[in-house]
């Protein structure tokens, strides 16, 4: 029995050993894409875009992500491990805008260029550690928040009570969206933000938190959620309270499910960021960098507000 097991193990090792030869040959450039997580529709679309670009360009793409979006330590470990695996270039969507800096330093030291996607790195932290990034690819979250705020203000006729579902505090993405939204609302003093609480980017928490808000502010007329998942949670909370159609819901990210909700009217609008384009551009630019071409240090992916009018045209 034991002998059999050892035999099988040896055969397995021999088989895999043959395979390993390929790893050393020149081959296509190896580019790693480290996302915040792989289990969120936004990042799934980003991954799809990246994979398409990789196939088109003949790049050997490795996509990795931590189990949980906010696990900065795991993300750092993944980056460290990929540096060990000697990838040619790294694309990263940082789990934490400051916490990613030590990992960027390590990549710099190993001479691996880093393309940052979606979430900005904290400028101060980066300059303090003399870290360098090759490019930032993403959309302007502040602008997106502002667009959403302006839409809401117009929709409510410049007057009313609004609730906000925030992302995880201290997150550059969520914070920017929030600042943009607040800025827009400020312009119409008769719109009042009656509640602003975090639902940690999650759908079930969006449900619970908004249900609680409905308890304390039954007269709330609109809700802005910093992500579609939280917005969809709020939509369900509204349905559970039998108030569908009475409360304006605006989300962010334009996930497929959110678009459907806009089409059906349970959501009023969502801000489109097109993660697929981001993924595609990231791999493309990393590839051009490796070929020695110059790339722009900042590439903005345009933002668009999806409403019932334009949802089908997408």
């Amino acid at each position: 029995m034991k002998k059999l097991l050892i035999m099988m193990l040896l055969i397995l090792i021999a088989l895999i050993g043959c395979q390993r030869g390929g790893d050393r040959a020149g081959g296509p450039p190896k580019i790693a894409f480290v996302m915040k997580t792989a289990n969120n529709p936004f990042f799934i679309e980003m991954q799809k875009g990246a994979e398409q670009a990789a196939q088109r360009l003949g790049v050997n793409l490795i996509v990795q992500a931590a189990d949980r979006e906010v696990d900065v330590e795991k993300q750092m470990q993944i980056v460290e491990n990929l540096i060990q695996a000697k990838v040619a270039a790294l694309c990263v969507t940082p789990s934490g805008s400051r916490e990613i800096v030590p990992a960027i330093d390590k990549a710099n030291r190993a001479g691996i260029p880093v393309v940052i996607v979606d979430t900005r790195v904290d400028e101060k932290a980066l300059s303090e550690s003399h870290g360098k990034i090759a490019a930032f690819i993403g959309s302007d979250n502040y602008e997106g928040g502002k667009v959403a705020g302006e839409f809401l203000a117009k929709r409510l006729g410049g007057k009313g009570k609004v609730a906000v579902l925030e992302g995880i505090p201290g997150h550059e993405t969520g914070d920017s969206r929030l600042r943009g939204f607040r800025e827009a609302i400020k312009a119409t003093p008769e719109i009042q933000i009656v509640a602003s609480q975090t639902a940690n980017w999650e759908r079930d928490q969006g449900f619970n938190v908004f249900q609680n808000i409905l308890q304390s502010h039954p007269d709330v007329q609109a809700v802005f959620a910093c992500s579609d998942l939280m917005a969809l949670g709020a939509v369900e909370a509204i349905a559970a309270a039998k108030k569908t159609g009475q409360i304006v819901v605006v989300g962010f990210d334009a996930l497929a499910e959110a678009r459907k909700a806009v089409e059906q009217g349970t959501m009023e609008a969502t801000v489109a960021q097109s993660p697929a384009t981001m993924g595609e551009l990231a791999v493309e630019n990393a590839y051009r960098l490796l070929k020695g071409e110059q790339i722009k240090p900042e590439i903005t992916v345009p933002i668009k507000l999806i409403t019932k009018e334009n949802v089908t045209s997408q």
């Binding site: 906010v70 900065v72 330590e73 934490g96 400051r98 916490e99 800096v101 932290a125 550690s129």
Partner: peptide
């Protein structure tokens, strides 16, 4: 050690 490693102390560190 974790704070030194990440150059940041997060209130959501160490989950799980």
């Amino acid at each position: 050690l974790l704070t030194a490693r990440l150059n940041s102390a997060q209130p959501i560190a160490g989950m799980m």
